[in-house]
Amino acid sequence: RELEKFANEFKVRRIKLGYTQTNVGEALAAVHGSEFSQTTICRFENLQLSFKNACKLKAILSKWLEEAE
């Protein structure tokens, strides 16, 4: 439930900031050390990743959002 809420909020905030899914994937290299594909970001936003992978990505995306805003 919390993950679903974060995924929805993330998408809204990403769009408000003017980032595409591809931009986010590339920008994550600075935060995490490796890029993520547009497909991975899309699957996260649509809750199509495994729970374990989504939880890992949530932590990375939270950190990125803090820096982007």
Rank of each mutant, 00 (worst) to 15 (best):
E26D: 15
F36I: 15
I15V: 10
A59M: 12
F44G: 00
E67Y: 08
T22D: 11
A27M: 15
L49P: 04
R1N: 08
V12T: 14
Y19C: 06
Y19V: 02
E26F: 02
T39W: 08
A30T: 10
F10Q: 07
R13P: 01
R43G: 08
N46D: 12
L65D: 02
A27N: 03
K56Q: 12
L65K: 03
A68E: 13
W64N: 07
I60R: 08
S37K: 07
T22V: 09
T39G: 12
W64L: 02
A59Y: 09
K5M: 10
E45K: 03
R14G: 02
K63M: 11
T40S: 08
I15R: 12
A59H: 13
E35N: 11
T40E: 10
R14Q: 03
I15N: 06
V12N: 15
I41H: 06
Q48R: 09
L3S: 02
E4C: 06
F51W: 13
V24P: 02
K58V: 05
G25H: 06
E66S: 09
S50Q: 06
Q48S: 08
K16Q: 11
T39R: 12
Q48I: 03
K52E: 14
N23M: 15
Q48V: 06
E45L: 01
K56L: 07
A68P: 00
Y19E: 01
L47D: 04
E45S: 01
Q21D: 04
L57F: 12
F10E: 03
E4K: 12
L17F: 05
A29S: 12
N46H: 06
E2H: 00
A59D: 14
A27R: 07
L49Y: 07
L28F: 05
L65R: 03
G33A: 06
C55F: 13
E35F: 10
K63L: 09
S50C: 07
A68F: 03
K11C: 02
A7E: 10
F51R: 11
A30Y: 05
A68L: 03
L3T: 02
K5S: 09
E66F: 10
E26H: 07
S62V: 11
E4S: 11
A7I: 15
K63W: 05
E4L: 05
N46S: 12
R1L: 09
V12P: 03
C42R: 15
F6K: 03
L49E: 05
A54G: 09
N46W: 02
A7D: 03
R43Q: 14
T40N: 04
E26N: 12
Y19G: 07
S37I: 04
V24N: 05
L47F: 06
L47K: 12
E35T: 10
E69N: 02
Q21N: 03
E67S: 12
R14S: 00
G25P: 03
A29T: 14
E26C: 07
R13D: 02
F6M: 03
T39H: 12
L57N: 04
W64A: 07
I41P: 01
E69V: 01
G18F: 04
K11T: 07
A54S: 14
K52W: 08
L3G: 06
T20W: 00
A59K: 14
G18R: 02
L57M: 15
Y19S: 04
L61T: 03
W64E: 06
L17Y: 02
E35S: 13
L3D: 02
L61V: 04
S50Y: 02
R14W: 02
E66M: 09
E67K: 11
L47I: 02
T22L: 11
S62P: 01
E45F: 01
A7P: 01
K11G: 05
F44Q: 01
I15T: 12
E4D: 05
V12G: 11
K58H: 08
Q48G: 04
A29Q: 12
V31R: 13
N8Q: 15
L17V: 03
E35A: 12
R14T: 01
I15E: 13
V31F: 09
K11D: 00
I41T: 01
C42T: 13
A59I: 14
S50R: 08
F6D: 00
I41K: 02
N53W: 10
V24R: 01
L61P: 04
F51V: 14
N8R: 15
G25T: 09
S37W: 01
R14I: 10
A7H: 00
R13A: 11
E2N: 06
E69H: 02
K11F: 00
G18D: 06
Q48H: 05
L57R: 05
I41Y: 00
N53H: 15
K63V: 11
V12H: 14
L61A: 07
C55P: 03
T20P: 00
K16Y: 05
N53I: 13
C55S: 14
E4I: 11
T40R: 02
C55T: 12
A27Y: 11
K16N: 12
K16D: 04
L3H: 05
K63C: 07
N53F: 15
R1P: 11
L65M: 08
L65F: 01
F6E: 03
F36P: 04
T40I: 05
G25W: 13
L47T: 04
C55H: 12
N23P: 00
A54T: 01
S62E: 14
K63P: 09
K16L: 07
E66W: 06
F51E: 15
A54C: 08
L65Y: 02
L28G: 04
V31L: 13
E67N: 12
V12M: 13
A59L: 12
E67L: 05
E67C: 09
S62M: 12
W64R: 03
A7W: 05
C42W: 12
E26S: 05
L65S: 05
A54F: 12
F51D: 13
N8L: 14
A30R: 14
F10G: 00
V31H: 06
E2K: 07
F44D: 02
V31S: 13
E26G: 03
F10A: 02
T20S: 13
R13N: 05
S34L: 10
K52Y: 14
N46P: 01
K52S: 13
E45W: 03
K56E: 12
A59P: 15
L17H: 07
A7Q: 00
E66P: 05
T22N: 13
R1V: 07
A59N: 14
T39Y: 07
E45M: 01
E2D: 12
K56F: 06
G25K: 02
S34T: 11
S34I: 11
E45A: 08
V12D: 11
G33F: 01
W64S: 04
A30E: 12
R13Q: 10
K58M: 11
A27G: 03
S34R: 13
R14E: 00
E66Y: 09
C55G: 08
E66Q: 11
V24W: 09
L17W: 05
L57P: 01
K5R: 12
N23E: 15
E35V: 09
L65C: 02
R43V: 00
K58N: 05
K58W: 09
C42E: 15
E45Y: 00
